[in-house]
Design a protein around this nucleic acid. Sequence first.
DNA 1: TATATAAGTTAGACTAATCTAACAAATAGA
DNA 2: TCTATTTGTTAGATTAGTCTAACTTATATA
Lengths: 218, 218
Amino acid sequence: MNSQTKENYLKSIYFLSKKNKEISLTELSDLMNVSKPTANNMIKKLTLIGWVSYEKYKPILLTDKGEKEASLIVRKHRLSEIFLSKIMGFGWEEVHDIAEDMEHLKSEKLFDRMNELLGFPKVDPHGSPIPNKSGEIYEESYINFSKIEHGNNVRLCALENSSKELLVYLNNKNIRLGTELFIKHIEPFDNSVVVNYDGYKSVTLSYEVIKNFLVEKI
Amino acid sequence: MNSQTKENYLKSIYFLSKKNKEISLTELSDLMNVSKPTANNMIKKLTLIGWVSYEKYKPILLTDKGEKEASLIVRKHRLSEIFLSKIMGFGWEEVHDIAEDMEHLKSEKLFDRMNELLGFPKVDPHGSPIPNKSGEIYEESYINFSKIEHGNNVRLCALENSSKELLVYLNNKNIRLGTELFIKHIEPFDNSVVVNYDGYKSVTLSYEVIKNFLVEKI
DNA sequence: TATATAAGTTAGACTAATCTAACAAATAGA
DNA sequence: TCTATTTGTTAGATTAGTCTAACTTATATA
């Protein structure tokens, strides 16, 4: 299996390639805090795995396979951070270090469950997107509910920034990802909306709530 | 630092010593699924760390230091299991494997927070006790609230078996570990009790609730 | 464009964790 | 109590990840 060590190298390469596309051994060895021969040695192994392509004296290039693999680690990291912050009540400044460790946890189910409990967040609280299980970062063109006009009906697809309180609130209202909302009225004064959905009629949702809804028209 | 590998050996030794006190190399190598020379080699290293004491051809003995260290790993494992089950909604059969991985997470704060969110459980759902942060397994003589008679006042010290629902309930009632409960009345019909605590007067707690309370008299 | 400096490579060594093959010690049963 | 079997040890090898020292290639600028 792929060791934590290799995963950490891959992640470093991934972040370096976001800025530069081409990465030098020195940049990598600096970021990883290892000697250049160590980084060189590791790059040869990562080439064998197929995560990077490398030729002597040339820059390091991340392959598609490597990029996908790295995205999955980033996904685990970001889900962990949000989970630690929203569900476990850690301060945002505390979560990074713990997530560095958690991102290497092997259980896929664990992260799927976190994702679910968090309401499938599209982005972490800093606005960084969460890659999906295939390692793809969808730049879905969901629309913020607050931009929708009367007469449209929408499906809730994602939450912009889902606090624990919001999730509990939506749970109580029986609104979940996929719920179809039929807009009866938009109140201009406070931007609240009145909707029908499932068995519920004329439910008022405040702007505080709906500004977090990423929806698509149906 | 102590590697996950060493921690796993230590845990195996810990569980073997619960049954036998003296452990043979063969038992260990069998449990760890490694060859005898590998186990032998590792035992020498664990002796150096001070977790076990060992002399050629003699049985393996766990030291106090080793026992403490092992308890801390068990603590992390059991807290993880309860957390996965109670807070994350995993089936009890799914949690073990994930906890095997989580028990090696380094953050102390993470497990302290789990402990807190779970209401400081004394035992896991199978009745196995949770070692404390010092690695001690206290066999505290807390009394189950249902055994307390009228006229006594008590402090809530632990929960026997704390479901998520119970924790949410107690949270709403503002009852937490350490809360002092003054018994006004015990209803013989349904074993419910009426208590005063903090700012609250004459609050009725059902038997369903108080049967989970481990308390001490004050 | 020649060369000083930066970047990258090779060689050789070390620790951790593992193996197999061969041998030695302990023990259990005839 | 003698020996066959089980148990444990030694020796030597391998892979992963790391290092330093010495060397080579690339590059930047004088």
